[in-house]
């Protein structure tokens, strides 16, 4: 079981990076990557939710839905679980850590509809690397860290872009898309 961990880390973080290789969770990747601080906050929020979501949905699927033959209900049940979890985390954060809650602000509720989170819960069910709950949680955690990596890299480059002269027709969003394209090409080399 432990032997697979390095492989899972490499896969989840780099070779199957959620944003740049699987193109999941593009919305926050483009929307919240204007500065490093926000991008980092968003990345961490996604990581936490991914980890906890996998922790709950994996057993739910393996021990309840699959044996009963209701595995086609996975998506609707998972959405339910993720949305509730985000809500719970938000309430807890609001009470326990006001600064973190304020730093995450609107991004936390936005994660509810982040397809990278739904993506990871689905992927661990079919991935050959994942053999148990521990593996699944690892996949979730490092998938989230991979997400953070990509979004922080992107925001760093966008900060640099703000102070560079960009050809007029490419200013703003077009150059960002090009940037994302080159990053995806680099990551697909793994």
């Amino acid at each position: 079981m432990l032997k697979m961990i390095p492989a899972i880390i490499m896969t989840a973080m780099l070779s199957q990076n959620f944003i740049l290789v699987q193109f999941l969770g593009i919305c926050p990747f483009l929307g919240v990557s204007k500065n490093i601080k926000n991008a980092f906050g968003m990345g961490l929020a996604v990581t936490v939710v991914m980890f906890i979501a996998t922790l709950i949905t994996y057993p739910l699927y393996t021990y309840l839905l699959k044996p009963l033959g209701f595995d086609y209900m996975e998506i609707i049940v998972f959405i339910f679980v993720i949305a509730s979890l985000v809500q719970v985390i938000e309430i807890i954060l609001k009470k326990t850590s006001k600064p973190l809650y304020e730093a995450m602000g609107i991004y936390l509720p936005l994660i509810t509809t982040n397809c990278a989170v739904l993506g990871v819960t689905e992927l661990v069910l079919t991935s050959e690397l994942v053999t148990g709950l521990f593996d699944a949680c690892c996949y979730g955690l490092f998938g989230g860290l991979g997400f953070t990596l990509a979004i922080v890299l992107m925001s760093g480059m966008r900060e640099k872009l703000d102070t560079t002269r960009v050809p007029r027709p490419l200013e703003g969003f077009p150059i960002t898309m090009l940037l994302a394209c080159f990053m995806a090409m680099a990551f697909s080399m793994f």
Binding site: L64, L65, L68, F70, M73, I76, V77, F80, V81, S84, Q87, V88, I91
Partner: peptide
């Protein structure tokens, strides 16, 4: 039933 149970559990949790 499954949906109801999931809804109730998480509703209660929240």
């Amino acid at each position: 039933g499954i949906m109801l149970v999931v809804a109730l559990v998480f509703g209660f949790l929240i």
